[in-house]
């Protein structure tokens, strides 16, 4: 019996070793491609900028100070860095707006797909994911073609005589938002669909039976039950929107920067790697904070509903 117990222990040890071996490639990639570089970025944010990019290896908190403050060139007094704050503000508000609009457009879409007969749903889902097969740059340029002053949208309106001068959309915050909604919409639709597909539509009938109008059924039954999908979709849209780079770069025309562009600027023309690094960490902190708030909110929501 002792040997049997011995064999069992050995089998367990082997099992653990096998699990570590199997997960080693993933763990290595996570360490070298994510955790490692993140550590480097954190270290860089506490160094001084080199004259031609790169960093000088001496400790400094200047980069962190200049995330939100700026030093006057003449009298060296500190004041709020308006430009940075404006960019933070634009990033957060545009991302929130993108999330809200993606939900407004995505919810009926997901509901539509979830209520189709089972055999046609796959087709609708496929249509939703088609844009994913196309390069982001190409999609963004396509949007630009539609909304620029000489683009399809304005030409049609001009020809119809509805407007006399082109509507300036391109190179505005609106353009950035349109682009981001278009790019991230599938990320809202898919998790919404996933939770709606599980929705028991007999509950909707039960709601109607118990005197709930369409709107009340939506608010009291459908929304609470697809909440996990709403939370997941909102996170999936909000977070990449916050760090978006290509879309604001092309559709914002380099005038309306978002955080991603500001960070790129510091690592490129700005030659201020520590500032770029501290901005990156700040972005990461905002994302984590948003996640925490969201998880908290989703958690209490679920508790309220028992």
């Amino acid at each position: 019996m002792a040997s049997a117990a011995e064999t069992a222990r050995k089998a367990e040890r082997d099992d653990i070793r096998k699990r570590w071996l199997l997960s080693a490639p993933a763990l290595l990639i996570i360490f070298f491609a994510a955790a490692g570089p993140l550590g480097i970025v954190i270290v860089y944010s506490f160094l001084e900028p080199g004259s031609y990019g790169d960093v000088r290896w001496s400790f400094s908190t200047d980069a962190w100070v200049s995330v939100v403050l700026q030093r006057d060139i003449f009298d060296e007094t500190l004041s709020i860095a308006d430009a940075h704050v404006a960019i933070f503000w634009r990033s957060v508000t545009l991302s929130l707006a993108t999330t809200v609009f993606a939900f407004i457009f995505g919810f009926p879409t997901a509901y539509f797909i979830a209520t189709r007969p089972e055999r046609t749903r796959a087709l609708w889902l496929f249509l939703i994911t088609i844009p994913f097969w196309t390069n982001l740059l190409i999609r963004t340029f396509a949007i630009q073609e539609v909304i620029r002053n000489e683009g399809l949208f304005n030409i049609v309106l001009l020809k119809l005589g509805l407007i006399s001068t082109p509507i300036q959309i391109i190179y505005t915050d609106t353009a950035i938002m349109i682009g981001m909604i278009y790019v991230y919409l599938p990320l809202m639709v898919l998790p919404l669909y996933a939770s709606m597909e599980k929705l028991d539509f007999r509950l909707v009938e039960a709601g109607y039976d118990l005197y709930a109008t369409r709107f009340q059924v939506l608010r009291r039954i459908i929304l609470p039950m697809v909440k996990p999908g709403i939370v997941a979709g909102s996170i999936l849209v909000f977070i990449p929107s916050l760090g978006a780079y290509v879309t604001p770069r092309i559709l914002g025309g380099g005038r309306n920067l978002m955080l991603g562009n500001l960070i790129e600027l510091q690592f490129g023309q700005g030659r201020n790697w520590p500032l770029g690094a501290s901005l990156s960490i700040t972005l990461l902190i905002i994302v984590l904070a948003a996640l925490l708030i969201y998880i908290r909110y989703a958690g209490t929501g679920a508790r309220n509903h028992g």
Binding site: Y208, D209, T213
Partner: peptide
Amino acid sequence: YKRPVNTVFQSYALFPHLTVAQNIAFGLEM
């Protein structure tokens, strides 16, 4: 929702996000 008729469903169709009492109160609230 405009008929004074209520249904007991084969699957019961109770609202899983509500308690027993909240389920019973639903129609009256509406």
